[in-house]
């Protein structure tokens, strides 16, 4: 009896083996490499190689014509002491902060309004808020350049028409106002995008949590701060990091608004504009490459500070 079972077991195993053998003819798993190969080959050529090439150039003196000559870490040492670089970094951060604060305030307020109330026309409103995000920053900047222009731009016309000002204002000659305008344009471009990301997080929160809180007598204010905000932390972190990384690389709006020179008084010069001008106007590619790596290090550092402080916060709560 026992033997019979053993034998049948053996037969079964044999069958399984035969099936496996037949399968292995049909086993095409190695095709996976062919399918993903184009991506990685193209990435190596157009992604990784230029990055490493930039790294190499950052250690050289290169004017775009003669061959690069190796000069060690001289470019990096120069960035450390370059007042123009630090001024650009400061401008970049100031303009990012000016845009990101209202952007987050509006994103959270709107998400709360849309999540707690049944709003008619939600789809079309959401689409309209999102629209500016899709348009080229270049076109938007050129458009605002027209609106702000002196003396007969649209905004001056409106202000004069209603008698709010007597003389037209030359907005783009005032550093603080110009930085504020960039912040405003960034807010206008991105609050809808941030809102949609935050809203995706909010709709993922189970409504039973809200109901339970309501039964316990919590009002909307409490619900927002005690339930919604803590549960939204991961998505807030993601959106914030994205904004920080994008903000530190901002370039388009400032470049178009000032014709590339960061006027007035250089207050609109951003790091990437400085990098661009160094390379493509002053033909100092080596130094420009060092600025790129310095900025990258700064972005990586800032991101990890944000990220680690977030992880710490989690540890404390737990």
């Amino acid at each position: 009896m026992q033997q019979a079972v053993d034998r049948s077991e053996k037969v079964k195993k044999g069958k399984v083996k035969a099936v496996r053998k037949r399968r292995s003819k049909l086993n095409k798993n190695h095709y996976g490499y062919y399918f993903i190969a184009p991506f990685f080959i193209v990435f190596l050529i157009f992604g990784l190689y230029p990055i490493l090439y930039t790294l190499y150039l950052s250690f050289t003196q290169y004017d775009g014509f003669a061959d690069p000559t190796f000069i060690g870490t001289a470019n990096y040492l120069r960035v450390f002491q370059d007042p123009q670089f630090y001024a650009a970094l400061q401008n970049t951060i100031v303009m990012w902060v000016m845009g990101v604060i209202p952007q987050f305030v509006f994103a959270f307020l709107l998400s709360a309004v849309f999540s707690y109330n049944r709003i008619k026309g939600k789809g079309i409103l959401r689409a309209l808020y999102y629209l500016p995000r899709l348009v080229t920053a270049v076109s938007i900047s050129a458009l605002f350049n027209q609106f702000l222009s002196y003396p007969s731009g649209l905004i001056n016309q409106v202000l004069m028409q209603f008698g709010w000002v007597k003389e037209p204002i030359n907005f783009l000659s005032n550093p603080l106002f110009t930085q504020g305008s960039v912040g405003l344009i960034h807010w206008w471009m991105f609050y809808g995008n941030t809102m949609i990301l935050v809203m995706a997080g909010m709709t993922a929160i189970s409504s039973s949590l809200y109901e339970a809180a309501r039964i316990d007598g919590a009002n909307s204010w409490h619900i927002f701060w005690k339930i919604t905000m803590p549960l939204l932390k991961p998505i807030t972190l993601y959106v914030f990091l994205n904004s920080l990384i994008g903000g530190l690389q901002s370039f388009d709006v400032q470049q178009i608004l000032t014709g590339g020179q960061g006027a007035p008084q250089g207050k609109l010069m951003t790091v990437v504009m400085y990098l661009y001008n160094t390379a493509f106007q002053y033909n100092n590619y080596g130094y420009s490459a060092a600025i790129a790596y310095y900025l990258f290090a700064f972005i990586a550092l800032a991101s990890s500070v944000v990220f680690i402080s977030r992880l710490r916060g989690k540890g404390h709560r737990a």
């Binding site: 230029p50 150039l57 390379a279 590619y285």
Partner: peptide, 10 residues
């Protein structure tokens, strides 16, 4: 921005 200089030269 990390790759633009190298990309241009390439």
């Amino acid at each position: 921005q990390l790759s633009i200089i190298g990309f241009y030269k390439m």
